[in-house]
Design a protein around this nucleic acid. Structure first.
Lengths: 248, 248
DNA sequence: CGCGATATTGATTATTATCAAGGATCGTGG
DNA sequence: CCACGATCCTTGATAATAATCAATATCGCG
């Protein structure tokens, strides 16, 4: 039983999911230890992208999903007229490209927000593997449904909430995602520019700026550029719920 | 080979995908004829829901996906404060519940907009079957990714487009979905109330009403209640692209 | 036929976009 | 290491789209 595992680990091109600190967030989460070699077998050792580089481009042939190992990625769709909509931010341990599963071409463009390393899962191999490992298949379904749900939440945010509520929600989301990686949930560095935040939340950059300063004046956060400190998480949570108070 | 098929078809509780007029839109689309019995084997003959009835409720245990056979369904999520967001409309041939795949509970509530019949696919059996039929697995991935993409498009619509553009886009979407079923794409009956349209598109009901009358005055559509006729499809398409013109 | 739910229309308000300008920060090359 | 340009961020003034408030009209159903 141990033999085949070793055999696969020796290849320098294969990632070692066993040793990855993100294995409890990423796909290995759904794979038994003694089956992990099968995942390692299809993973391609990640390239490193520097800030601004594209991991993949919308409408080019869909080949792989990518797990973020370090850094951060933003995905966006471009409409026929060239209008961009940021559809998501992806942090270490998160899987990019699920919105293209089962499609011929990538449904969006993925861009590194900072120096970013990724693990690559070729989809043909991934589909083969999910057919063999029910738990992995279940997990992929789960991740995809999570992405649908997240997108629905975003739609809700966009159509029902004020600028302050949207930004509070984003800050809290980032906070919990940092926290999950055992990093500070109150003191972190935003991987994205104000512009990306604005686009993602359906706001103008100026509005984002104004809300940041308003939150600072209220002592809820402290921000210098991309460095953010959440001084009053409860207040932020209140802001996201504020809407409901007024309406009931 | 023909024997097992017959054997399964005789059960009165099993749906006959073979004979279903929607088999080219629904899951059978991805299953070979000689494997179709396996799908029929897990399908539960659809119940019929009258207008307003719930097919399933958010936060109750996730058991099944449902294919719409006739009628129409709306899905919506309710936030902690009771705020509702309509997340989608489902027409015959479309699959409801994918946003809950891999989850313990339903992620949304599904409600019949009119008298609606459905086919039920229990997820445990469906997951088993997708593991055995690679084409079906691929198709489910495809449908889920389509739902992610649709949701991203909605986010784009909500954050970047005017009321007129949003409504034009919805009308065109419905038109093409009717057309796909070989029904008129220019003369149909809206399955949902103005309220649902408004909620889905992030608008106030009054705004929806106003846009409808504006479109009528411009001779683009003709509407009496839920009966709609698209008089000038090109004009509608122009409206959805109007935004781009102005910005470049 | 009548009631409640749904839809339309009008007047006013408010949130956020847009326009405009200045200030900070970053990265690069001299 | 500093200077430069470019990008990014902030702040202010004004404008516009759609929400809200309010009232009436119509539809659908029992």
């Amino acid at each position: 039983m141990a033999q085949p595992i070793r055999l696969h680990q020796v290849s320098p091109l294969k990632a070692s999911c066993h040793q990855c600190s993100l294995s409890n967030l990423c796909l290995p989460l759904a794979v038994e230890d003694n089956e992990l070699y099968r995942l390692e077998d299809i993973v391609q050792q990640g390239r490193i992208f520097s800030r601004g580089e594209h991991i993949f481009d919308q409408s080019t042939p869909f080949r792989s999903c990518f797990a973020v190992k370090s850094g951060a990625i933003k995905t966006s769709i471009i409409s026929e007229n060239g209008e961009e909509q940021v559809t998501g931010f992806f942090m270490p341990g998160e899987l990019v490209g699920l919105d293209s599963m089962g499609s011929k071409n990538y449904a969006c463009t993925a861009k590194a927000l900072e120096r970013t390393s990724v693990c690559e899962f070729p989809v043909d191999r991934l589909e083969e593997l999910t057919a063999k490992l029910p738990d992995l298949q279940h997990h992929v379904y789960h991740l995809m449904s999570q992405e649908i749900q997240g997108s629905h939440q975003l739609a809700m945010l966009l159509s029902k909430n004020t600028a302050e509520e949207r930004i509070a929600a984003l800050l809290l989301s980032l906070s919990s995602r940092f926290h999950r990686r055992r990093m500070s949930g109150t003191n972190f560095s935003l991987p994205m520019a104000r512009n990306d935040i604005a686009n993602f939340l359906g706001l103008a950059v100026e509005t984002v700026s104004r809300v940041f300063t308003r939150f600072q004046n209220q002592g809820i956060i402290s921000a210098r550029g991309r460095e953010v400190e959440l001084l009053d998480v409860e207040a932020l949570q209140t802001v996201t719920r504020e809407f409901s108070r007024q309406n009931q």
